[in-house]
């Protein structure tokens, strides 16, 4: 099994609305760090929900770890875009992280200490979540997703609510995690992620694949359907 995710001509449409994904073909291989970028409403979150089994494709074939998404869901770690919980909930960091073990069969899980250490949040273990900064909370969410020892990690805009410095740290961290776990990351911030990610696909109802280096202004305009201002981040690579 070297393909972790495989989509063949997958289409999806929300009830009474425009088509969200149109015949998407995508294969994510073991060990990959794939970025998915595209405009708002381009279907990025829809794609994640299909992979998670929260939505069912209208047509096409979708397998995750050679299983249906529902069967594979316990092997997927998921970090949602907006925290789906209330920040004022009285709960400690370590209890949030341990929640990731729910539904785990006995063997497949990582020790709590190891995960907290890996994400550099040991010192926060006994704090309540309302005392955390955005970057710290994001690490807690990643820890919760990793403690079930998933084979695939999905992240939806992991850097949306944190500052630049914390963002850089998160990407360094994800690079480390990627040594063991396949990662699929959704982001609007293409300039930033292209410095870290091996392959980027662009999603705006349909899919365009290419390595990060070949992303041209023409392609960007085609995707976002408006002129896009390009900023050169460093000398050796133009996006």
């Amino acid at each position: 099994m070297d393909s972790i995710i495989r989509l063949e001509d997958v289409s999806f449409q929300y009830q009474d609305r425009q088509i969200a994904l149109d015949k998407v073909n995508l294969t994510v291989k073991q060990g990959e760090f794939l970025g998915v970028v595209g405009p708002n409403g381009g279907g990025k979150t829809t794609l994640l929900k299909l992979i998670l089994g929260l939505l069912i494709p209208n047509s096409g074939k979708l397998t995750v770890l050679d299983k249906t998404p529902k069967q594979a869901s316990r092997d997927i770690g998921y970090v949602a875009q907006f925290s789906t919980f209330k920040r004022d909930f009285p709960i400690k960091v370590k209890d949030v992280v341990l929640m990731g073990r729910l539904g785990c069969s006995g063997g497949a899980k990582s020790p709590l200490d190891k995960i907290l250490q890996q994400l550099a949040i040991e010192h926060l273990a006994n704090k309540t979540i309302d005392a955390l900064s955005g970057g710290e909370l994001q690490r807690v969410m990643i820890a919760r997703a990793l403690i079930s020892a998933p084979k695939l990690l999905l992240l939806d805009e992991p850097t949306a609510s944190i500052d630049m410095h914390a963002e850089q740290n998160i990407f360094d961290l994800l690079k480390e995690i990627n040594k063991e776990v396949t990662i699929l990351l959704v982001s609007h911030d293409i300039g930033f992620i292209s410095r870290y990610i091996k392959r980027v696909v662009c999603l705006n109802k349909t899919l365009i694949c290419h390595p990060t280096t070949s992303l041209t202004p023409e392609l960007m305009e085609q995707l976002y359907e408006i002129p896009v201002r390009m900023i050169q981040h460093n000398q050796d690579r133009t996006i």
Binding site: L54, R74, A80, T84, F89, D95, L102, G103, R144
Partner: peptide
Amino acid sequence: YKQFLAVCFDAEFARLRGL
């Protein structure tokens, strides 16, 4: 207790864990 806590704290995540 754990299950109730998970459902109250983050129902969407609990659902993804197969609860």
